[in-house]
């Protein structure tokens, strides 16, 4: 048998067009468009106004979703490995606090570190990313080496990081940040950062060894190990990246708000998980895409914005949101069952 590459088959492979099946994203996109159109129609009926023909509203919607979207891209990768990350909202708050404390301007009397004011923007940003990544490394190490279930390890981090965020300044907000730093969160910058992160990790998951290993570990960790993958090390890396992205979200959130507050990002982890799951990421692992998560985040955003536009009470918004998350998981279960039957 010729193991070496053979020219004939190479040409055959090159000339044979690959049959493309409709990716799952198409159906999720259809749901997004459907929901948007529904709000449009109901909007005209109820309020005599267009939902979509309002750039201001759409920009606000995307801005709101950007921060959750950044987290969700990290959470997506964790879920692809078959894990879960409940800590992202709290890690966001912790990084927002630490970052803000290093981004305060000198004309403010209540600086956390009076000697460290007016620092160049890169320092709070870098420290924020580092804090986030560190939290992720702790999550990953607990899961990969101490063999603690991801749910429990990140639940612990969720509680502890939130406590640490509060303890950091005794619950006081950290305000008066330098203009240089708040620029990060100004205008459409959060959207640009979100989309940039999405592109980077879309490529990383699809075209790099990192991505391929991530899917393999989620699909079958034992087979991944026997295939020569250092599963533990890779898991730590994936959780570290999720932490890093939560950290980035914390930086953006504090820059946008111009303050760091320990209550930031409350329940964001659940919205992030919801965005991933609505976007077709399977909680069983091995399945999921960044594009799906981006659309999932937009679905959440359109819902929020649409209900506000229609004047529907926030309580009812949550009821519908909950139902959509459950529906997405039902679809996922159905897909898995189809897979298992074969």
């Amino acid at each position: 048998m010729a193991i070496a590459t053979n020219n004939d088959t190479q040409q055959m492979a090159a000339t044979k067009p690959r049959k493309k099946k409709l990716p799952t994203e198409v159906s999720i996109l259809a749901v997004l468009i459907g929901i948007a159109l529904l709000f449009e129609i109901v909007g005209w009926i109820v309020r005599g106004d267009s939902f979509l023909m309002n750039p201001q509203r759409l920009l606000i919607m995307i801005l709101q979703m950007s921060i959750i979207g950044i987290i969700a891209i990290g959470v997506t990768q964790v879920i692809i490995t078959g894990g879960i990350d409940l800590s992202s909202g709290s890690v966001l708050a912790l990084t927002a606090m630490v970052t803000a404390s290093l981004a305060q301007s000198s004309d403010y009397v209540r600086a956390v570190y009076p000697a460290l004011t007016d620092l160049p923007w890169i320092i709070p940003l870098a420290v924020g990313l580092l804090v986030g990544a560190l939290a992720g490394v702790i999550n990953g190490s607990l899961i990969a080496f101490a063999m603690i279930p991801p749910f429990i390890a990140t639940l612990g981090m969720m509680v502890s990081a939130r406590g640490l965020a509060r303890a950091y300044t005794d619950g006081q907000p950290v305000s008066m940040l330098t203009q240089e730093f708040t620029w990060i969160g100004s205008g459409a910058n959060p959207v640009i950062i979100f989309l940039g992160v999405a592109v980077i990790f879309h490529i990383a998951l699809k075209y790099t060894r990192y991505g391929k290993y991530t899917y393999a570990i989620g699909a079958n960790p034992q087979a991944a190990r026997v295939s020569g993958i250092n599963v533990r090390r890779h898991l730590v890396m994936v959780y570290a990246i999720a932490g890093l992205l939560a950290g980035l979200a914390g930086v953006v959130a504090s820059a946008r708000a111009g303050t760091g507050q320990a209550g930031m990002g409350l329940m964001y982890e659940l919205d992030a998980i919801a965005a991933a799951v609505i976007g077709g990421t399977s909680l069983a692992g091995g399945v999921g895409r960044v594009t799906g998560t981006v659309i999932g985040a937009l679905i959440l955003g359109v819902m929020l914005s649409g209900f506000t536009f229609l004047g529907v009470d926030a309580y009812y918004q949550d009821i519908v949101k909950g139902a959509i998350i459950v529906a997405a998981v039902i679809v996922d279960q159905y897909r898995q069952r189809k897979r298992k039957l074969t």
């Binding site: 060894r209 391929k212 290993y213 899917y215 393999a216 989620g218 699909a219 079958n220 034992q222 087979a223 991944a224 026997v226 295939s227 020569g228 993958i229 399977s282 069983a284 692992g285 091995g286 399945v287 897979r339």
Partner: peptide, 26 residues
């Protein structure tokens, strides 16, 4: 080539290609 195809061999949620290429990505 491991004994138990399902347990320690296959990545059932992935494609034929992704299953075949995994050991040579290094």
């Amino acid at each position: 080539l491991t004994e138990d195809r399902k347990e320690t061999g296959l990545f059932l949620s992935l494609s034929v290609l992704e299953n075949m290429e995994i050991a040579v990505l290094r």
